[in-house]
Amino acid sequence: MKRIMLTLVACASVLAVALSTAPAAAADPTGLRMSSRAAAGYEDCPAGYSCYFDGLNGTGAFIYADHGCDYYDLAGSGWDNRISSIYNRGSSKVFVYTGRGTSFDVHGWMPVGQRGNYNTNDIDGILVGC
């Protein structure tokens, strides 16, 4: 994979994710939300969001994002190295990264309307495109 330096000129800022056991579907300041229940499958991802599951094939606990042009650093969130599958029901491509600081590797991406497994459990960050 190509080593890249992330410069998020198009994004307002680099945001740290601080997910907690907040009430169901409550948004933290970054726009990521945590579901209050485990997903039975990809169909549990709300329309207009990109969803990140800790189980394969859209199962298990999940978080979802509704904002574009944002980078979410998963360090310290409880979701670092936990994402196993993704469903992108949002309006722009989603990129997933491994790495820390200002140097990251693109691990993969998910086009709009697509879903699939990332069963390596090494995703450290998410970029929701503009």
Rank of each mutant, 00 (worst) to 15 (best):
C51M: 02
C51Y: 04
C69V: 06
S36C: 11
T30I: 04
S20K: 08
D105F: 04
P29K: 09
A24L: 06
A18G: 11
V96E: 04
I63H: 02
S35A: 14
A47V: 11
D124L: 02
T59Q: 09
Y72A: 13
G31W: 12
V17N: 01
S50C: 08
A61Q: 13
S13K: 02
A22H: 02
M5K: 14
S103Y: 00
R82H: 12
C51A: 01
A38T: 08
W79L: 05
C130T: 11
A40H: 14
S91F: 09
S35F: 09
V14E: 09
Y49P: 00
G48D: 08
Q114W: 05
N81T: 04
E43R: 11
T30N: 05
C11G: 06
S84H: 11
G129L: 13
V128M: 09
D44E: 10
T120C: 00
G113R: 00
S91H: 10
Y49I: 00
W79F: 15
W79Q: 04
V106D: 02
F95I: 10
C69H: 06
W79D: 08
T102V: 08
T59F: 08
F95R: 06
Y72R: 07
A16T: 14
A10G: 13
D54A: 00
V14N: 08
A61E: 05
G58A: 02
A25D: 15
I4K: 04
A38H: 00
V128D: 00
A65L: 00
T102K: 03
L15Y: 12
G125A: 14
I126R: 00
G60D: 12
G68T: 11
S77F: 12
L56N: 02
A27W: 07
P23L: 10
G31A: 13
W109L: 07
R100G: 03
N88R: 07
D105R: 04
D105Y: 04
K2C: 03
N121P: 01
A75Q: 12
A27S: 12
T30H: 05
